[in-house]
Every structure is written in C-alpha cells, then in structure tokens.
C-alpha cells in the first residue's frame, strides 16, 4: 500500500478514458437520445392534432347530415306541392280541352244543321218549283217566271 508512480499512471489513464468518452461515446448517444425525444414529442403532438381533426370532422359530418336531411325534407315538400299543382294543371287543361272540343263539336253541329237547312231549303225550292212547274207546265213559261221563282226561293 505504497503511494508511488501508479498514482500518476492512473491519473493519465483516467484522463485518456474521459477524453475518449467525451469525444466518441457521449455525443453520438446523447444526440440520438435527444433526437428521439423530439421525435416522440412530435409524434404525440401529431396524434393530438389528429384526434382534434377527427373530432372536427365528425362535427362537420353531423352538420352536413343535418343539412342534407333538411334539404331532403324541402325537396319532398316541394315535390308534393308540385304534384298537386300538376294534377290541378292537368285537370284545368283537360277541362279546357273538353270545353274546346265541345265548342268545336257544337259549331260543327250548327254548321251541319245550317248546311242541311240550306240544302233542304234549296231542295224544297226546287221541289216547289218542280211541283209548281208541273202544275203550271203549260201556261207558265219557265223562263218568264224564273225571276219570280228565285224571289220565292229567297224568301223561303
């Protein structure tokens, strides 16, 4: 247990080991540790952010759904209204068309009646003239009395 040169040797060995440790061991490991620390912190922050983002998205989705529901209701309501409108319109159109057809038919009928009446009148006049002609065939000159017959026909 003597104090001797070993003391100096030990001090030098100590200094060399500390130097080596300071140069080659400590810095790479501690920088790796610190980098990992920041990475983990970043990851946790990102996870938090993701969670918040998800909550926001869910809220937004609920909003959109609510809106869509409202819109659907509105569309249905409008469609119902439109349906009744269309039925009404169709009814009105049909009624109008019916009226029109009726009117046209009436006109046609009137025309037919008038025509028939005209024809009848003409034929009657001819018949009358023929009858009168047969009765008065001898004394009555057709040419001389045609004016009279025409006047008669006109009066009928």
């Amino acid at each position: 247990m003597n104090i001797n040169l070993t003391l100096i040797g030990q001090t030098i060995a100590f200094a060399v080991f500390v130097w080596f440790c300071m140069k080659f061991v400590w810095p790479p490991i501690i920088s790796a540790l610190n980098e990992r620390k920041t990475r983990i912190a970043d990851g946790l922050a990102a996870a938090d952010e993701g969670q918040r983002e998800k909550a926001r998205a869910e809220e937004h989705a609920a909003e959109v759904l609510e809106e869509a529901k409202g819109q659907a209701q509105e569309i249905i309501r409008r469609a119902e209204r439109r349906e009744t409108e269309m039925v009404e319109e169709a009814k009105t159109t049909a009624r109008g068309e019916g009226d029109r057809i009726l009117t046209a038919a009436r006109g046609e009928i009137d025309k037919e009646v008038n025509q028939a009446r005209e024809t009848l009148r003409a034929q009657l006049a001819t018949l009358v003239v023929a009858g009168a002609g047969q009765i008065l065939s001898r004394e009555v000159d057709e040419k001389a009395h045609s004016q009279l017959i025409d006047e008669l026909t006109q009066e009928l």
Partner: peptide
Amino acid sequence: MGFWAIHLDTMFWSVALGALFVWSFGKAAR
C-alpha cells in the same frame, strides 16, 4: 522502492477494464 515504482496489477486491471468500458460503449455509440 519508494515512489519510483509502479503497481503492474493495478495498472493492468484498471486499464483493461477502462478499455473494455470505452470499447463496449464506443461500439454502442457507433
């Protein structure tokens, strides 16, 4: 021998263990 002597066993074991330390930790550091 007085002061001018050196303990070979102390030096050997301490340097060997110190070298083992810096070698193994240096390996991890790489």
